[in-house]
Computed example of a mutant assay.
Amino acid sequence: MSDAIDGFPLDAPAHSPLLPAAAPRESTSHVIAEALRAAIVDGTLAPGAPLRQDAIARHFSVSAIPVREALRQLESEGWARAALHKGATVAPLSADEAREIYEIRSALESLAIGLAIPNHTAATLRESASLCRAAEREPDPSLYVARNVAFHMSLYAPAARPQLEDMIGTLHRRGERYLRLKFGLPSYKGESDNEHAALLDAVQRRDIPAAQSLVVAHLLGTGDLLHRFLTERAQAEAALANQPKPRARRTRTTSGS
């Protein structure tokens, strides 16, 4: 996340590709929330960065009302934190949160895939296969996150359980910026792609126990990986911060006679 910034850019150009300056007439707060979420996911807005209402409102040429609504939405989804008299900031990355998100996902998605498999058709299976290939071939982290979500949700859609689907979708959004960390570990991207292929094969064979076992192992493994990675990174950062700083060396001056 070396390109991350400390807060919402006060002087960002209007043509910024990440944050569109012109908000549409409808769902302004939703568009603002989506833009900020995208900036958090790809690391442009770093953990702990302030989300200043006045700067965001100026950028989108809107009043403070839709900005407040957008920040409340992000806070409810776990993307932002608000403190009294301090305003909102980007929520920090948490090893425990990452693991818990994937633990809950494993339970919900195991249920969803078991309900969906009997309702899959040749057309829905073709769509899932196409989305699986798209995710496997995607090298861009931000686009991979979207393709990964699309593949998983395509497996569960035939279950026709809208509330369950909505809960899973919320957890996917909560886990997006954690999933992006896997691109710092290239070997695990390949493992994840292989697990997707095995999961798709089980769904195509309509093997419910195998599909449920695979999706649980896939998600719990990802959660454990992210928990270990974030824990080790936090320990390394703490150790570095506690290292004594070297003293500045004095330079001697000599005077001529």
Rank of each mutant, 00 (worst) to 15 (best):
F60D: 02
A64C: 13
V67R: 08
R68H: 12
Q73E: 15
Q73K: 04
S76A: 15
R81V: 13
L84H: 07
K86D: 10
A88L: 04
A91V: 12
P92S: 13
P92W: 10
P92F: 08
A98N: 05
R99G: 06
E103D: 14
I104N: 06
R105H: 00
R105C: 02
L108G: 09
E109A: 02
A116L: 03
I117Q: 08
P118L: 09
A122P: 10
A123K: 04
T124V: 06
L125K: 05
E127R: 11
L131D: 05
C132I: 02
A134S: 13
E136K: 00
E138I: 10
P139T: 06
P141T: 10
P141I: 07
P141Y: 05
S142M: 03
S142C: 07
L143G: 05
Y144H: 14
N148I: 00
V149S: 05
A150L: 05
A150V: 08
F151D: 01
H152Q: 06
H152C: 14
H152V: 11
L155C: 12
L155A: 03
A157M: 12
A160N: 12
R161Y: 07
R161E: 11
Q163S: 14
L164R: 01
L171Y: 15
R173E: 15
R174V: 01
G175T: 01
E176W: 11
L179H: 05
L179P: 00
R180F: 12
G184K: 09
S187M: 15
G190M: 07
D193G: 09
N194W: 11
E195K: 11
A197I: 09
A198S: 12
A198V: 08
